[in-house]
Design a protein around this nucleic acid. Structure first.
Lengths: 196, 196
DNA sequence: GACGCTAGTTATCGACTGATAACCTGTCAA
DNA sequence: TTGACAGGTTATCAGTCGATAACTAGCGTC
């Protein structure tokens, strides 16, 4: 009945999307070098050679995965309308990524491969864009925008090392996690007016 | 004379240190999965099997490399005496790591492997310790300390994607790099007395 | 109802990698 | 000298990986 898949046939583009989804999850753990095209294939329920053929190269596949993640994150920031509420809205936009940690991890794996010309360029674009958007949309200073992006990187790192899951082990870590994930300052104080 | 190495014999511990140095450089680019024990061996001018024998396992080797880097970074923070100058001193301590970007990159590669129980634990310790030291040594608030650690992660990322080298390509990126590498707020004012 | 296109597979390969085993060699002590 | 231990090498392997080639099968259409 519904048990075994009838091996439906998909269009090339449908398959690409499906494989990209699977690849995002698999690359998230493992990273680029630590993940085989076969793992991706199995996750997508496709044969390994087909994965290679559709994307040409493992490297190309990773680039597409990274690009997809990067684009979506940037798009979220761009969706925030300028104005007084922009600061908290952008903070929330990034925090919402926690719901899908795979994206954060892929992002980090891409950053770490910054030596690659293509990936590096794309990575720099993402960082610069996020920085700039926070400045313009939220009317923030360079330093505020830097701290915003920095907090994002810290969030990535904390999730990569599974800090939230181990917060109970170390009270200090717990504090760091809490005040990063749920920024008590930033939006609150800053939006209210940080004339000091 | 001094031309070709006479293939001096070293003690086991000397060799270990030498290999760890070489491994730090090689792992910095490439990361764990993307680096072969043979690359490490060549960098250290030793045969590949010897590297494996000395450390038991590639994984174990990477752990030692990471541990070494982590320890040194923590040690730098711990060396800062408490007091009013502590904030800028700790900022400078981390910024000085820029002189040896290999350490930053190894650190990041370790973070990204946070799923590994051993590495993950060590990584969380480093982050929590840096956070705590900044609070206690500099008498900073949780939020300030978080921003300090976050800035460190951003610094790592910017170097990983070679942002400083490409600052000329994008003026926005240039601003981000400048105000991260040379923090004009926080420490800057106090220490260097940068009345621009 | 066969043709042709596109989705997808199985078979296979050459390169590489981490690890093991067996062997060699410098150096110091008796 | 010789012995013996620590430092270090060459030879080798089983497994894995990315990629290519050749083949198969669904599906619309004339």
């Amino acid at each position: 009945m519904t048990s075994d898949a009838p091996a439906r046939r998909m269009t090339r583009d449908e398959r690409r999307e499906q494989i990209l989804d699977a690849a995002t999850a698999v690359f998230a753990r493992g990273g680029y070098a630590g993940t085989s095209t076969d793992q991706v294939a199995r996750a997508a329920q496709v044969s390994q050679p087909y994965v290679v053929r559709l994307f040409g190269t493992k490297e190309e596949l990773f680039r597409e995965v990274f690009d997809r993640v990067a684009s979506e994150i940037v798009a979220r920031f761009e969706a925030v309308p300028p104005g007084p509420g922009a600061k908290s809205a952008m903070g929330e936009a990034y925090t919402r990524l926690i719901a899908d940690p795979d994206q954060l991890r892929v992002l980090m794996h891409g950053f770490v491969l910054g030596s690659d010309p293509v990936l590096g360029t794309r990575a720099r674009e993402v960082l610069a864009r996020a920085f700039d958007l926070y400045r313009t949309r939220a009317g923030a200073s360079d330093e505020e925008a830097r701290d915003f992006v920095a907090r994002g990187m810290l969030l990535n790192t904390l999730f990569a090392v599974q800090a939230p899951a181990h917060a109970d082990d170390d009270p200090v870590l717990a504090v760091l996690v809490r005040c990063t994930v749920d920024p008590s300052d930033g939006p609150g104080r800053a939006a209210a007016g940080e004339a000091r």
